[in-house]
Design a protein around this nucleic acid. Structure first.
Lengths: 339, 339
DNA sequence: CAAGAATTTGAGAGCGCTCTCAATATCTAT
DNA sequence: ATAGATATTGAGAGCGCTCTCAAATTCTTG
């Protein structure tokens, strides 16, 4: 099918290229009759402006990039990223942006692609998930002055002029720990994740809760895990030696691994050891026992990231936006509060 | 940071715009000394050609679209799609293509965005996952003559001129069913999925295996489920009434749900009922008991889809490519073959 | 109904690249 | 050294759009 141009649409409608352009871009000062006529032609022909020409002339592409640097294989097993991607995709569709996806499995891959992303003008803005330690990527974006928002808070001090959308990890783990304390548990372990900002915040909230309730912090009750089920299993096996009465895991996947480890040892959840997770992923509700967990609004995070980015692009230069979304504790059987 | 143009690079290197263009595009017939000089300037300046201008002049964007039509919320919980996305992203990075993501949660969303995708020239080719019944999308792509490959075989007759990459679902379920039969099980149930091509093929392979081994096909031992764990649980509960000795599930998630249902009924896997899944997702190996399942090369599917698409774009017009990848049976404890 | 103001439209340049074609530089063989 | 072949380079048009500026049209108002 032959693709039409503005000129040709104009010809059919009996107006100039300029007028058609005005109609498409919603400019004022067009006689209603003319606008109608042009719109009819556009609809009938299914005309869509050539996006390359548009970008070139207007120097904006209406493409957003979604960047996930140094993403390990495993991270994607977690339903977190898929959900974020889905949210971002949907929000982009909604606002007539096209989301381009940049997943980097190695630094080498990141290196190779990132220059093209920032310097080719192909992208109007970026959503960056930067949960791990800083890559050089953010500084590169800043150098080229590309608008961007991070999902997850940046750790470093330069955070003030970086826009981000994050969930209140600290409050979440505070809730989780407080819940366990209120249920009477004293020896509360933590299956923590390291090297990521969210993990640091979750750890902080956990400690704060213990401290606020006058409990000592026993470092030997804290085991480090990655975000996987298998990691949780291993970490919990180690932790079992220390005989905790309850355990707070930094993710539901970890919690599920922990439950498996506890059961393998012949113990019952929550009777012998209570478990609380973080995420409220779909499997949490149908787990055995159903998992008490901290629900974070993952989808909303993605949506807000895009909307914030649009706002930044529109009003640039703009002050940085900082959004922290609330979380909630979902109480199910695994913590022993309900049967 | 000010973005440079070809002209300016040429100025610095003391050559014309045309020559720089030639260097960038790897044309022959450039004096080595000149090429060297130009390449140095490009490297030092970090110059990247403006992609809009490039697209406009060459009428190709080096962008591939990844389209997932009528995707329900739940489908994304499955690690299948994330893995495909990851593979496609990686393959695109490898070949200097940019992957644009189009997930459609509703037909309305699909309708709104699809015209832009096909008619704006923003995209050189599409990878379409069309596991469900045909949307109007494929015919639209064909109308606009955009190269595309499907992941998963098209069901309808027009398949011959559609390129696709698929796994051998039929052989997979044939393997699974044969395995169970060989182990001596006779009343073998199936937790099947409906309304998707892969499901149809898996069902066919299952039936073929029974027939080939002289077993009757008992329709009452076939329950329909969606692809979720919860769906598997419900379907298995129903199936339990019919007292199967073994059950083949169309996905690992379904199998996991089935195991939970069996256990809730006070029965043991595999002692009372053997279970085989499909996918070999990461959780399959660490499930309790470890899941016998059909491993399909999901990642490879995505990679091949991109490579095939590149091949098609390059040699267009080209005959349709049909690729069917082999699967393998991974035997673990849940089928009762090993402890 | 004319003259000025306001609205609506069109012409033209230009965004940064590719690609053709012609011009120039270099090489080969006599 | 020189004609002819060949390799290398540059000039210029054009891709389809946006956006400015001026022209044409319509609307006011005395």
């Amino acid at each position: 099918m032959k693709r039409l141009t503005l000129e040709e649409i104009g010809q059919i409608a009996g107006v100039s290229r300029s007028t058609v352009s005005r109609v498409i871009n919603g400019h004022p000062n067009i006689r209603p009759a003319v606008r109608q006529r042009v719109e009819d032609v556009i609809r009938q022909t299914g005309y869509q402006p050539n996006s390359a020409a548009r970008s070139l002339a207007s120097s904006q592409s209406r493409v957003f990039g979604l960047v996930m640097p140094s993403l390990m294989q495993s991270a994607f097993a977690d339903p977190y990223y898929p959900l974020v991607i889905q949210a971002i995709s949907h929000a982009c569709n909604q606002h007539d942006y096209t989301p381009a996806l940049f997943l980097f499995q190695t630094l080498e891959e990141e290196e190779k692609t990132s220059q093209r992303i920032v310097a080719s003008g192909m992208i109007d803005g970026l959503v960056v998930t930067a949960d791990t330690i800083e890559s050089t990527f953010v500084s590169k974006i800043q150098e080229y002055e590309i608008p961007f928002v991070q999902i997850g808070r940046p750790l470093q001090a330069s955070a003030a002029d970086i826009s981000y959308v994050d969930v209140d990890n600290e409050a979440g783990s505070y809730l989780a720990a407080s819940h366990l304390i209120q249920l009477g548990y004293r020896r509360i372990g933590q299956l923590a994740t390291a090297h990521n900002v969210a993990g640091a915040h979750r750890d902080a909230g956990f400690r704060q809760a213990l401290t606020d309730r006058g409990l000592p912090i026993d470092e030997s009750l804290i085991e480090v895990s990655d975000f996987s089920e298998a990691g949780g299993y291993d970490a919990m096996r180690a932790l079992l030696e220390r005989q905790p009465e309850a355990v707070f895991a930094h993710s539901d996947a970890i919690a599920l691994g922990a439950i498996r480890a506890i059961r393998d040892r012949g113990l019952k959840v929550p009777k012998d050891i209570a478990v609380v997770g973080f995420d409220d992923m779909p499997l949490a509700a149908s787990a055995d026992p159903p998992l008490t967990t901290v629900r974070q609004p993952i989808y909303r995070t993605g949506t807000l990231a895009v909307e914030t980015l649009i706002d930044i692009v529109r009003t640039s230069p703009a002050p940085a936006r900082h959004i922290v979304l609330p979380v909630e504790l979902v109480i199910r059987a695994s913590s022993g509060a309900v049967s």
